[in-house]
C-alpha cells in the first residue's frame, strides 16, 4: 500500500451468482479527500460503498483503511470482533435514514457511543448535544424520529454517525429519498463536513453537489470504473463515450424535472 493512501481498494470484485456486480476495481482515497461516485442505477456504486464497511462483502479483492485490512478472512468469531471494531471508524449514512424509531434523537445518537465506547450518560448526552448543534437540530434532542421531516431525519442520522468519531464517512444516496426542498439542508451539513476535511465517499445522483464539493469524481458503469478525475474534467470534458452519454441523459432528466 502506498504511503499516502488512507483508504485503498484493490482488485475488488463481487458477484451474485453468475452476475458480476463489481469487476476488478481499484481505488485509493487520501485522508481528507472527498470522492463522489456517480453512475446509472445498477452500476455497482452502492455495492462498492457497502463493500468498504463489509455490509456487502467482496467476493475477492482487498479493502484497507489506514493500514488495516477491513475484509480480512478470519474464523467467524474473530471476524465478527474485527468487523465490529473497524466499523466504528467508518460512518455510514443511508438513503432511508434508518433512524431507530423506538428511541428519541438523543437515544439514537448516544446508543452506540455508550455501548461501544463506554461513555457515561453525561458524556454521551454532551456528545449528542454537540453533534446536534453541528447539524442545527439542538431543539429536537428529545423528539422521536417520527416527528421529524426527512431532511431533519437525515441530519440526525449524520449526527449519529459522527458521534462515533469516524475516520471516514460513507454516504449512500443520502438525499435521494428527500423531497427537493429538503435536499439543501442535508447538502449544507455535508459541505460543512467537507470544510472540516472529513474524508468522505459519496454515492450520489446530484451532479451539482458532486461538482461543488468533491475533489474527485468516479463514473461507474456495469461494475467498472469507466472514468475518474477532478469534477471539472468529468463534468465538462469527459473522455469516455459512456460518461458523456450518462451525463447528457442525466442532465436532460434533471432539466425535465425542473
Amino acid at each position: 500500500m502506498s504511503d499516502t493512501a488512507f483508504i485503498e481498494i484493490r482488485n475488488a470484485a463481487k458477484s451474485f451468482g453468475a452476475f458480476e456486480v463489481l469487476k476488478d476495481i481499484n481505488l485509493t482515497v487520501d485522508r481528507g479527500q472527498i470522492v463522489a461516485i456517480i453512475g446509472p442505477s445498477g452500476s455497482g456504486k452502492s455495492t462498492l460503498l457497502r463493500a468498504i464497511n463489509e455490509l456487502d462483502p467482496l467476493t475477492s479483492g482487498e479493502v484497507w483503511l489506514e493500514g488495516v485490512q477491513i475484509n480480512r478472512k478470519l474464523p467467524h468469531r474473530q471476524y465478527e470482533k474485527h468487523v465490529n471494531q473497524v466499523r466504528q471508524d467508518i460512518g455510514m449514512v443511508f438513503q432511508h435514514f434508518n433512524l431507530f424509531p423506538h428511541l428519541t434523537v438523543r437515544g439514537n445518537i448516544t446508543l452506540a457511543p455508550k455501548m461501544l465506547k463506554g461513555l457515561s450518560t453525561d458524556e454521551a448526552n454532551k456528545l449528542a448535544e454537540e453533534q446536534l448543534a453541528k447539524v442545527g437540530l439542538s431543539e429536537k434532542i428529545d423528539e422521536y424520529p417520527s416527528r421529524l421531516s426527512g431532511g431533519q431525519k437525515q441530519r440526525v442520522a449524520i449526527a449519529r454517525a459522527l458521534a462515533m468519531r469516524p475516520k471516514v464517512m460513507l454516504f449512500d444516496e443520502a438525499t435521494s429519498a428527500l423531497d427537493p426542498e429538503l435536499v439543501e439542508e442535508v447538502n449544507l451539513v455535508m459541505k460543512q463536513l467537507a470544510e472540516e476535511h472529513m474524508t468522505m465517499i459519496i454515492v450520489t445522483h446530484e451532479m451539482d453537489f458532486a461538482a461543488s464539493v468533491c475533489d474527485r469524481v468516479l463514473f461507474m458503469d456495469q461494475g467498472v470504473v469507466v472514468e475518474e478525475g477532478p469534477p471539472e474534467v468529468i463534468f465538462q470534458s469527459p473522455e469516455n463515450e459512456r460518461t458523456r452519454n450518462f451525463l447528457r441523459k442525466h442532465l436532460a432528466r434533471a432539466n425535465g424535472q425542473a
Partner: peptide
Amino acid sequence: VDKGQTEAARTLGMSRWETMRKVVLPQAMR
C-alpha cells in the same frame, strides 16, 4: 423489522447480539 435497522446498528459497530437486543427486539416486541 426493517433490514435497514440492522444495517444502521451494525454499521455503528454493534455486534449481532447487541443489535438484536437494543434495536431489533424492542421494535419486534411491539
